[in-house]
Design a protein around this nucleic acid. Structure first.
Length: 520
RNA sequence: GCCCCCUUCGUCUAGUGGCCCAGGACGUCGGGUUCUCAGCCCGAAAACAGGGGUUCGACUCCCCUAGGGGGUACCA
């Protein structure tokens, strides 16, 4: 059988971390079996500009390398892939259901249905619609209409027997038909509802495997009924567990940011993002820029491969030890059988650890290239960067080494790019390392003199000179290096001191030391 | 209320009746390396939701309870 999967986002304006995990699994399954991955847009009740609200979602998928064979932009043999453009097809399906006796016109008022439901609940029994306002004949219909009633189309659900679904993740799941409702498939205004649309589309698009979030498991019976009534073969179903909040089993939602911010790791990530956004002048709002949204990671400089690898392991595992998967490996190894049935909570700390791991695997050249856009956006260097700036950037990236976790971290190293007379000092560090120690100023002055003659001004030579200096005076390196760091970089922490000085060069180093001493 | 799904260290997970006084990873804690911070290395603490069965033997099978999630919409 030809494997075809689909991901069906609503154009909401952003791509949620849970949603993209579902998309990834659909995509992996299709690729694993040499099939196709289809993108369908569920915009049945969208009033706003769909194109605009869709773009961030497509952008997110593209960034992560989740490519679609059919759907928006690429089209395909079953176009259009927008539900809003397929209403006439759904209308046709409704008529087919009616003609086949699988659905009926119903004239009940909302209050009447509600009353029946509440009565059932009072008696603690399953609610089943009495079908009192079902039009069994034209005469019924005319009579109801004469009463000023409006009609909807309801499913004529079976009242006995069971439906067995062999879910690829859950296993065998049984539903009693009697506990299903006569769901509405077409509204009073003639528009069709999601479940009908979804079933029709899955059939028309020849979807073989419906891989979707767990919240749809309970919706499967009505969809299966629609499909069967329309004479369609049922697709294979696979219901994925939802992605939970950090440190809890509750479902991850974009609306509970306040709560997530109380989680230490989530907060750390969120703050990292805010800092970077501020430095590159990115206007952010909690709505669209936070660790629950995929775009966040792209903006602050995560590697897509790291996010994908992390997401892969959120609810899936190959065995008891394999954690790193290349794109090819995950495609070759992915299987729905190994999807966990329990919800997996989103762990920002572990995601960051994956990012760090992937960053470490890049060569210095790759890392410098990757990081450059942030250096440009943050005005550390010009846009586009000159050859000279690129060369310096690469040196800084080398010196920073593993300190660069995400692309935006390069913004922590502005001291390498600012002019000597504009270097800012961390006041606390300056106080502690230069102003307060009695001998700091003197040592710094003498050290500057020693450094003046170092030739060439390279890390090993500078280090040799500093070591000779302290040995000569019988002091420890700590007594001079901290002051030197603050004078040269304005900060208490940073890259290796000697590499730092080499990058700055003799002139800047000496100028900066002098300037620091002048501040006293 | 009714129906369905889920439950192993804080977190992601391995485990399909004996290999498990439960393994790996992230995080945490302690130590080492060191000019700071990272990184790296070594080590430690940390879990089978609870209760009943079945069995010579249960993390693994069955039942109940609790907790979490979903559906019960003219939402998707």
């Amino acid at each position: 059988m030809k494997v075809r999967t689909r991901f069906a986002p609503s154009p909401t304006g952003y791509l949620h971390i849970g949603g993209v995990r579902t998309a990834l699994f659909c995509w992996l399954f299709a690729r694993r079996h040499g099939g196709q991955f289809v993108l369908r847009i569920d915009d049945t009740d969208q009033q706003r500009n769909v194109e605009q609200a869709l773009e961030p979602i497509l952008e997110g998928l593209r960034w992560l390398g989740i490519d679609w064979d059919e759907g928006p932009e690429v089209d395909g043999p079953h176009a259009p892939y927008y539900q809003s453009q397929r209403q006439s097809r759904y209308q046709q399906a409704v008529e087919q259901l009616l003609a086949g006796g699988h659905a009926y016109y119903d004239y009940a008022r909302t209050e009447e249905i509600t009353a029946e439901r509440e009565a059932a609940q009072q008696e603690k029994r399953q609610f089943v619609y009495s079908r009192r306002w079902r039009a069994r004949s034209d005469e019924d219909a005319q009579r109801f209409e004469a009463e000023g009633r409006q009609r909807v189309v309801r499913l004529l659900m079976p009242r006995e027997g069971t439906l067995v679904i062999d879910d690829l993740v859950r296993g065998r799941v049984e539903f009693a038909w009697a506990s299903e409702q006569d769901h509405v498939v077409q509204r009073t205004d003639g528009s069709c509802l999601y479940h009908l649309a979804s079933v029709v589309d899955d059939h028309d698009f020849e979807i073989s495997h419906v891989i979707r979030a767990e919240e749809h498991l309970s919706n499967t019976p009505r969809q299966a009924f629609i499909a069967q009534s329309l004479g369609y073969d049922l697709p294979q179903y696979a219901h994925l567990p939802y992605v939970a909040e950090p440190g809890s089993r509750n479902k991850l939602s974009k609306r509970k940011l306040e709560k997530y911010l109380k989680n230490k790791d989530f907060k750390t990530l969120a703050e990292l993002g805010e800092q970077i956004a501020a430095r590159i002048g990115l206007a952010t709002s909690a709505e669209t820029f936070n660790p629950v949204i995929v775009d966040f990671y792209r903006e602050i400089g995560f590697l897509p491969e790291a996010l994908v690898n992390y997401l892969l392991l959120l609810g899936w595992s190959l065995d008891d030890k394999t954690e790193t998967f290349s794109r090819e490996e995950m495609i070759a190894q992915f299987s729905l059988e190994r999807v966990n049935r329990a919800p997996a909570s989103f762990d920002p700390a572990k995601l960051l650890a994956f990012q760090q791991r992937y960053m470490q695997q890049l060569s210095v050249e790759q890392r410098a290239t990757f990081v450059r856009p942030w250096a440009e956006l943050g005005k550390l260097i010009s846009t586009p960067a000159s050859e000279k700036e690129r060369a310096r950037l690469q040196k800084v990236v080398t010196a920073a080494g593993d300190r660069l976790r995400v692309g935006g971290d390069i913004l922590d190293y502005e001291e390498f790019f600012t002019e000597d007379d504009k270097l800012a000092y961390d006041e606390k560090a300056f106080e502690k390392r230069i102003r307060k120690p009695d001998d700091a100023a003197l040592l710094l002055r003498e050290l500057a003199a020693a450094l003046a003659g170092v030739e060439p001004f390279s890390a090993p030579e500078v280090e040799a000179a500093v070591r000779a200096f302290i040995e000569q005076r019988g002091i420890k390196i700590g007594q001079v290096i901290h002051a030197l760091r603050v004078a040269a970089t304005g900060k208490a922490v940073g890259c290796g001191m000697f590499e730092t000085l080499e990058i700055l060069g003799r002139d800047s180093t000496l100028t900066r030391i002098e300037r620091a001493l002048a501040q006293l």
